[in-house]
Design a binder for these strands. Structure first.
Lengths: 159, 159
DNA sequence: TAAAACCCTGTAGCGGCTAAAGAGTCAAGG
DNA sequence: CCTTGACTCTTTAGCCGCTACAGGGTTTTA
């Protein structure tokens, strides 16, 4: 099948498929005379694998590792289990952070019940305050914000 | 004070401060003869405001809006309240998504209790499957993944 | 046979920083 | 006075995981 068909089958954008190829996650497929990419069922399975992992918010690096195991079925899969455990950890941490944020935001919201002039607004005034305790205590993350669930991890690596 | 001192006071990286200036969140400060930036307490307060908002995962655009209200204290602050309500919504949605992911990941993990050879690994095999239901049902987000809590929103805007 | 639908490569952009190169400025110690 | 080192300056490029063009070529359909 051609790239558009693969895209439809897997619910992926065409550009994303080409991107995965550039990134080495999908192998380079055969081409037609007209230079169109031609995919088989193995490609589709591999792409589905990748998309499933992405829907669980894994990074492409994590996925690369899983794919290596998928490609060498004789190896011991202990590292796969470890990766999953670690990734669950990322997700759980991020949930905790977000829950703290939710509380802080709700507290903040309480400070201005109804609309008045901005100079008196309890929300704006509170946000000026020295420090609204940040999600991870006093080690402000500053530089360390990473995307999605992997932020806390980046922080750990750095420290 | 000079930029390094401001950075220390507010727990921000020097480069981040210059970045906020470029982005128009912080006004351009006065300079010394040697072309060093010189900040006063107003700058520090504004920067703290920004960092507090960031620690609540607001985007710079959201912060820009809040700053506009902060800068015109005579205006009605209703929009501030609305922004906060909406932002709490983002956070709550993201928490829900992540919780679903956590469940899926834990289920997945159950499929391979102990290390064996990768060919038999229940995790790797499950990840090939057609579709592991994605966080938001069947409208796979694909193109719409955005960072942090604002992903679901981007999706909404797009549809 | 023409239009529409698809495909190709290459490049640039998103957000919110972070890092590094290469240069200038300033304070303290010898 | 001079050196050293800590600080600062500007500019540019990079991170992730795509997304969105521009400017072409190919294939399918009417």
């Amino acid at each position: 099948m051609k790239i558009g068909e693969l895209a439809r089958h897997t619910g992926t954008q065409v550009e994303t498929i080409r991107y995965y190829e550039r990134e080495g996650l999908l192998p380079e497929p055969a081409r037609t005379d007209g230079n169109y990419r031609i995919y088989g069922p193995a490609h589709a399975e591999r792409l589905r694998f990748i998309r499933n992992c992405r829907s669980l918010d894994m990074t492409l690096d994590e996925i690369r590792l899983l794919l290596r195991f998928k490609d060498s079925p004789a190896e011991n899969c202990g590292a796969v289990n470890d990766l999953l455990d670690e990734h669950v950890g990322h997700v759980v941490n991020r949930i905790r952070e977000l829950r703290q944020m939710e509380c802080q935001l709700r507290d903040l919201r309480e400070l201005c019940k109804e609309a008045r002039d901005a100079g008196q607004c309890g929300i704006l005034n509170e946000l000026k305050r020295p420090t609204l305790n940040s999600p991870d205590g006093d080690t402000h993350m500053g530089a360390c914000k990473e995307r999605n669930v992997h932020r806390a991890v980046a922080k750990a690596r750095r420290s």
